[in-house]
Nucleic acid binder design. Structure first.
Lengths: 348, 348
DNA sequence: CTGTTAGCGCCTTCAC
DNA sequence: GTGAAGGCGCTAACAG
């Protein structure tokens, strides 16, 4: 069946190749690894034997001696989250372009598992890309030296490791400015889990905005990070006097949008809504979602670039901060005249 | 400033632990691996030394000798595809529950890369989960023995490897029955890439349906597999006399839905539309999409179960075929009276 | 019950 | 230029 008579593919060892080619084991190693000081004739002979036998160097053995696995680990809180999916995609392709493999781990949003997985996966790879938005700062700082070289995604930690992040604060500020320009003065912010780093950045941006525009008000509504959380927040939003709502992310915005539509609230006529992230479906909601486009794929690519630098032994790469692009679509519009606005606000 | 004075974490070797505990290297190995025939007092002493030094066994060395890596490889055509994301998620969590790690590779839809990656990743893991919907049958059959143990996702290949798949044919048939029950007789099927296995299954189902219902007609419209392809197919759809359209998948259906809405065609009043997959956003389109819910996460879990069986050395697991659940939402409805239907069919 | 000795498959000084 | 030998860190026979 196969072209050679060997069974148990991949089980051919370097010793057998050496025997077949009539040379020493060391010569095979050198020939196949492109060491220049080998007689070209021998190189040819070895190469011929190698693929006659279907030889493939055992990466494990090679790693054990070289100390490098050609693999990096990635720990994400949730593989179901579109943002991390995009980061993973960018990362995976960038790493593959340099012949690196990617070992993934999904911590299922549990901080304890995160620490565990980070260590376990790091030990079988050359470096770690860590997405741990909710790990407490002190834990993170304790963990980082144990898993170096490491690159952080969407969260900084002093200078313990290079970070690649989106500038959530600046983007939220831009979203506020956009709404302010449309005449909105009373806002509601549906916050994500309180302890996430990106939520803190947004809160800071809101504070800055309010200092710059003392005539504005921003009600903060605690919530979750998914579609259902957004839908559940609808009544709370209607109970405020906000004319524009900034959702923690697109999922929350979509949930809110859906629940509001069911209640007969028109968007953006009665209420403007913004999301965050620009996930693939943001353009396809009704109305299409105005949002801040987080360049997640690029985040993944940059994370690899930083890791690549670390692996090369160069200086610690600069942290990078990418500013999400405000993408105006149909879910935001001019503020309604006050009276009409009041009319729209009747709870269920 | 860790708890111990060791630098270069993870670099503590078993020899150092042995020295520290005043025992032989073998005893450390036995004690730490829970071999019962070790003096409990020694076990304690070894354990103490181990975590005093922060010792962690090197998985590479362990793998080299044991021949097992506790890792499986997964090759997918596109990490950006919601279906594979879900499969990966189910797989990853199921594997993690049994302390297995997951090495991923994204072939970027290129068959050549698929073969390459399958081999490369398989050699550094214990098994391979392969999602290769478009790899030619002969190539697949040639590849499988080289990467065994392997599990196929969404595509069967004789008995060369267990497969875990969704029953696309049966589900499409059910979708057709649903539409037929609503009075539709003329359909359009927007097909995906011709060479995919799941497309073939759907075509078979259509043929069977037409044999069972000779008074029906199904126009086949070639297309791609994404949102834009669906949007691009809108005019072609309108050029047929179909009253119901079956899209290759939800993405295509959403694109079509969007383009039709722009053209003033009402769904489902003028035209019924079905998707396929039930991706996370299918319930949130306008109108919500009637679709066949492919249990992708479960597919991933089952794939792991099969792999787990293979790894355990048991008999080759049965292939599993999961039937997607027809999920009726708002995008399908009763057929319109003929005359009105004709009226709706005017191109842009 | 514990220690000594072989390798797992490979790369890499060393001598020749 | 090439071969022989040591060792990466660990587990699994062997002895004792």
């Amino acid at each position: 069946m196969g072209r050679s008579s060997s069974r148990d593919p991949g089980k051919v060892t370097i010793t057998e190749v050496a025997k077949h080619a009539g040379v020493s084991l060391a010569t095979v190693s050198r020939a196949l690894n492109g060491v220049r000081t080998v007689d070209p004739a021998l190189v040819e002979r070895v190469r011929a034997s190698a693929d006659a036998l279907g030889y493939q160097a055992n990466p494990l053995a090679r790693s054990l001696v070289s100390g490098r696995t050609q693999t990096i680990a990635v720990v994400v809180p949730d593989l179901g989250n579109p943002t991390f999916q995009a980061v993973l995609r960018g990362l995976s392709r960038a790493a593959a372009a340099e012949s690196y493999h990617v070992l993934i781990a999904d911590s299922a949003e549990q901080v304890a598992a995160e620490r565990e997985l980070a260590g376990a996966t790091r030990r079988r790879t050359d470096g770690l890309i860590l997405c741990a938005p909710r790990m407490p700062e002190d834990e993170l700082l304790a963990l980082l030296p144990q898993v170096a070289p490491a690159v952080l995604v969407n969260r900084a930690a002093a200078t313990a490791a290079p970070a690649v992040a989106a500038d959530y604060g600046t983007a939220l500020g831009a979203l506020l400015d956009h709404l302010h320009g449309l005449g909105h003065r009373r806002f509601a912010y549906i916050s994500g889990l309180a302890r996430s780093a990106s939520n803190a950045a947004r809160l800071d941006a809101i504070a800055a905005f309010r200092r710059a525009h003392p005539d504005t008000a921003v009600a903060e509504l605690p919530s979750g990070v998914d579609f259902d959380s957004g839908a559940a927040a609808a009544d709370a939003v209607l109970a405020t006097d906000a004319t524009a709502v900034l959702a923690f992310n697109d999922l929350v915005a979509m949930g809110l949008l859906s629940a509001l539509t069911e209640r007969g609230v028109r968007v953006p006529e009665d209420l403007s809504i913004t999301g965050f992230d620009d996930i693939p479906f943001a353009p396809y909601t009704h109305p299409p979602l105005t949002t801040a486009a987080v360049p997640s794929v690029e985040l993944g690519e940059r994370a690899w670039a930083a890791m690549s630098g670390l692996l090369a032994g160069g200086p610690v790469p600069e942290s990078v901060l990418l500013t999400p692009q405000i993408t105006v679509r149909g879910s935001t519009g001019p503020v309604r005249p006050e009276t009409l606005n009041q009319g729209a606000r009747q709870g269920p």
